[in-house]
Each structure stands twice: as C-alpha cells, then as structure tokens.
C-alpha cells in the first residue's frame, strides 16, 4: 500500500516489539509491557495480535487468520485483508500451509508444527484481573508467585457447583512459574498449549502487554488433585463432517429449538469433508441437543 511501511508498522516499532517478544520467550508466561501503538483497527479487535504478527512477518511467510476458529468471520477477513494490503504476503485458510496463524478465541484442531507460529489476540492479559483490579498489585503477586487467591476462586466454584465453572480463558500455569491467561479460547483448547511444538505468542494491544510460550513448554490448567481439569464440548457429532472430537458451534436453525452442531474450525471440517467424511447434514430437535 502506498505511503506505508511493510506490514504497516515502521521498522523501529517492529524492532521494539521483537525485543519485547524475545524477553517474553525468555520468561515463559510473564507479561512484558510494550509501547503498543495506535493501529487503524480498534483496540479490542486484535491490535495486539496484529502488532505481534506485523513484527514477526516476513515477505516469504504465509498467513492464516481465524476468528472463532473460522477463516471467513468478518474480523478474520478484515485482518487478513489488512496484511494482504500492507505487506502483500500470501494468505491461506489451510492450517498446514500457514507459517503464521493469527487467532482469536481458538487453537486449530490440527496439531501445529515446529516451523509454525501461532499469535493469539488477547483482550485481557492479566489472569488475576477479576480478583485484583490494580495492576501495580497484580505485578507484585506475579513477582512473588502469590497465586493462592486464584485457587480460592476454583475452591469456591467447586463448593458452589461441584466443579470449576470457568469455561473459557481458563487460567494456566506456565513452566511451573507464571499464572497466565490463555486468551478467551474455550477450556477445550487448553491441553493443546501443553508441550506444543509451535511458538505461541500473545499480544494485548489495549493493555500493552506481550507474553509467550516457547515450543515444548509445560502448560497446566489450574485444578485440584481430586478435581482434575477436564474439558467440555457439545456431546454431538459435526453435522457436516461427522467429527466427534472437534469443538462444535451450535447453530440455531429455526425458532422451534432446532439446531445443528458443526465444527468451529472451518479448515478442519472442510479438510475432513474433502477426505470423504460426512455428517447427517440435518438439524436436530431441541431435546436431543440438551
């Protein structure tokens, strides 16, 4: 695009962000403050992820952008176009082909590889924010690894509901040291972060924080020995590809309570369909869904 640098940000800014990224990789799960810039997209819409992607993107990269697991959601389209326009890089919807995947709210179903980077958009990087609003105080809590209050929250959930009632942005302990917000991915995706071969980068633009998980790092979801972490998904099969192990979206098909469950990861679903897997293709009635 005329008048703008490769991938929008100037090289000084990208260098500043890469320095923050290096620090973040060196201290897994630790939030590194950085001089987040105003971007032409609104705060909360992926400015952190965009700045991280812009800083690690090279001309030879192939970029995939997903939102809610899908490549064709409006915000994913908007961000993919932004980079196609400002960096002219190749884009793809194929998880296999991508070298950089920017995501909001999902981790692809397909296992990622060592030669891939996944960039998460993060609205609230501070896992303790709901327990302690002051960032000066949460910084101290991280420095001293004082995480008892987070376990108190889990204790309260189990006491009240019989199990932990956090279903997304479920806090994790990274490398046995830092409590980290995995961004609002469903808890279903948490286990994929553990010992992932790909580099995981997290950008929070509005809150001006960057953090990272290097490849093959221990990432544990918080739990109790006698109430181990477990994931939830809708207990149905995908209506399009028949998958019984992928994360599903629930699509309401009429006003009588009929719905259809389909893979949230559109690339995963399409790949399976191309391989000949099929689902019922039919909506199901209300009772069956519950």
């Amino acid at each position: 695009m005329n008048g703008y640098n490769f991938a929008y940000l100037d090289e000084q800014t990208k260098r500043m962000i890469r320095r923050a990224l290096l620090k973040a990789v060196a201290i897994p799960g630790h939030q590194v403050p950085f001089g987040s810039r105003e971007m032409p997209l609104p705060y909360g819409w992926g400015t952190g992820g965009i700045q991280v992607t812009a800083s690690v993107l090279g001309a030879a990269d192939t970029l995939k952008v997903i939102d809610q697991g899908a490549d064709d959601t409006t915000n994913a389209v908007s961000i993919r176009r932004f980079f196609a326009r400002t960096a002219g890089v190749a884009t793809t919807t194929d998880t296999n082909e991508a070298t950089i995947i920017q995501t909001r709210h999902r981790i692809p179903e397909k296992a990622l590889r060592e030669d891939q980077i996944i960039v998460y958009q993060v609205p609230q990087p501070e896992p303790l924010s709901k327990l302690e609003p002051s960032r000066a105080e949460t910084r101290r809590m991280h420095a001293l690894a004082e995480y008892g209050s987070m376990h108190v929250r889990l204790y309260e959930d189990i006491t009240r509901f019989g199990h932990v009632a956090i279903s997304y942005d479920y806090p994790v302990m990274v490398n046995h040291r830092y409590l980290m917000a995995p961004s609002p991915i469903p808890a279903f995706d948490n286990p994929k972060m553990h010992m992932m071969p790909a580099l995981q980068l997290f950008g929070a633009g509005r809150e001006k924080r960057i953090y990272a998980i290097p490849p093959y790092t221990d990432v544990r979801s918080l739990d109790f020995d006698d109430h181990p972490f477990r994931t939830t998904r809708a207990p149905q099969c995908c209506a399009l590809c028949g998958a019984d192990d992928s994360y599903l979206d629930e699509v309401v098909t009429d006003d009588q309570g009929g719905r259809m469950f389909v893979c949230s990861d559109t690339d995963h679903c399409e790949t399976r369909q191309a391989e000949g897997h099929t689902g019922t293709g039919e909506p199901i009635a209300r009772e069956a869904a519950e």
Partner: peptide, 16 residues
C-alpha cells in the same frame, strides 16, 4: 475499542 469489541462474534466462548 474494548466496549465495541463486544460486537465481534463470541460464539465459541458462549458455546462453552
């Protein structure tokens, strides 16, 4: 930005 980002799809979180 942050208030209006609530307009973005959140159906994965809502599903969970």
């Amino acid at each position: 930005g942050f208030v209006e980002h609530l307009k973005l799809p959140h159906y994965v979180d809502f599903q969970s």
